[in-house]
Design a protein around this nucleic acid. Structure first.
Lengths: 248, 248
DNA sequence: CTGGAATGTTGATCTGGGTCAAAGTTCTTA
DNA sequence: TAAGAACTTTGACCCAGATCAACATTCCAG
């Protein structure tokens, strides 16, 4: 049932696609070598759980390729996604024994893991790592706060538009191409996952996507492939005039 | 009109009330001295704006006493509070020129400010500062994510209960006393500010507070002074069974 | 292919919280 | 000590989004 290695890990850091965006972005050759000693790659399939909230977690690491989600749940089953982890994003918290969120791979995913204890030690001797991690954490904090506005104050339609905006921007940044005019991308999330991210029900997500389609804001091919004829138009629908920011 | 110094700044770090919780928590004597050279205190009155979103910000710093809020607004006036800054919390982001949120003092407040440029330099030579800031930022990220669950998935009543829970916990941590059984504290926020924090209208906030009062979950003296007869009961209302965490 | 999970769409109805409106309470400042 | 101004409560009504239900589509495994 295992597909034969969806995507293989990079052979070494030199050809790693996230070399210049991840925690290791600012490391020198010798530092990379130290990291290399405590590092290993792991592959996950779409749908697979990386960690369960409450589990012991003896590694931290970076998303190399693919997408994962960070999710929090209440006892009665209500669920809120609190983070969307894209290539180069960091998973885990140095100094923390147990995961406090569920981490799930929503697409096939490759992770570059570091054994936690040695990584923590490395961090205290390697300002380049600690510094980059601080920077990334501050970015994520900004993204989380931006998302608080979405959750707290935006309408369902604006929420959907905001999510599309983020995904489109990410594709522009990571792949090639500008974040304006005509754009095309795939939704890496199911309707349900979108609902969990947006604080909506999946029915509402479905309806609002249909509405945006009817209004010509987006064009769908199949369920997942989206074309945005005019990105500026989409941003207006999202309610945030142009504000940059967002998203690590 | 100025009250004669609501609360004065500490004379020196030795008697600073946040000495062991703020960015400087782990600094040695010599490091404190370096910080001292770029530091100054500022007093704000309740209601005063500390920084406007978009403004140049040439300082960062810590809340010494009092409370401030971090707020984000859409052009049409919808407003979402994205942070509640308590004593020892850090304001501003090293490396960032312009504020991206409004910062407002909701009570009289004393800040310990550092000139931004020299602080940034200091940070690169002083792992103790950078490290502590990373730790604090990670805590704030956790708090922001916890809040995403509140905003996205909780009912109005649960939201109010969650907020009361946070404030009660803070008072327990900062002041004296345990976070269980009978607790008493003052609300540092107006109904409107609570609404902005919770993604509600002030009418709903008012109604739900009345409802909690009627149900005996809380007892009010005046508008602001709250007694919680049974903290466990309040936590149940908040929907999170006991989960610790939250709040820097 | 084919039967059954997932996954997604659409409709009908209900409801929690928003909106609008009017009073009631404090707090100021004169 | 009075007259605002700011804050809070409460009521009546409404609507965006939830809930419940049926059906369509896609994707597999056998």
């Amino acid at each position: 049932m295992l597909k034969e290695e969806t995507k293989t890990a990079p052979r070494d850091c030199g050809e790693c696609p996230i070399r210049h965006r991840a925690v290791c972005a600012r490391c020198e050759a010798d530092e990379l070598e130290q990291l290399d000693r405590v590092k290993y790659y792991r592959n996950f399939q779409a749908g697979q759980t990386v960690v369960w909230a409450g589990d012991q977690m003896d590694f931290v690491g970076s998303v190399v390729s693919g997408i994962a989600t960070l999710t929090q749940a209440m006892e009665d089953g209500r669920t809120q996604m609190v983070g969307l982890l894209l290539p180069s994003d960091f998973i885990g918290r140095p100094g923390r024994e147990k995961a406090i969120y569920d981490v799930v791979a929503t697409t096939d995913m490759v992770m570059c893991c570091f054994r936690r204890k040695p990584f923590e030690e490395l961090m205290s001797n390697t300002p380049n790592i600690a510094h980059r991690l601080l920077e990334m954490t501050l970015d994520e904090l900004d993204a989380a706060r931006e998302w608080m506005l979405v959750l707290g104050r935006k309408t369902a339609r604006e929420k959907i538009a905001s999510l599309l905006t983020i995904i489109a921007r990410r594709d522009a940044t990571l792949g090639f191409g500008k974040a304006h005019g005509k754009m095309t991308f795939d939704l890496p999330l199911t309707r349900e996952a979108m609902a969990d991210y947006l604080g909506l029900t999946l029915e509402t997500v479905s309806r609002q996507i249909s509405a945006l389609r009817k209004d010509g804001i987006i064009v769908l091919e199949g369920k997942r492939h989206v074309t945005v004829p005019d990105f500026e138009r989409l941003m207006e629908e999202a309610g945030d005039d142009c504000d940059g920011g967002l998203l690590a």
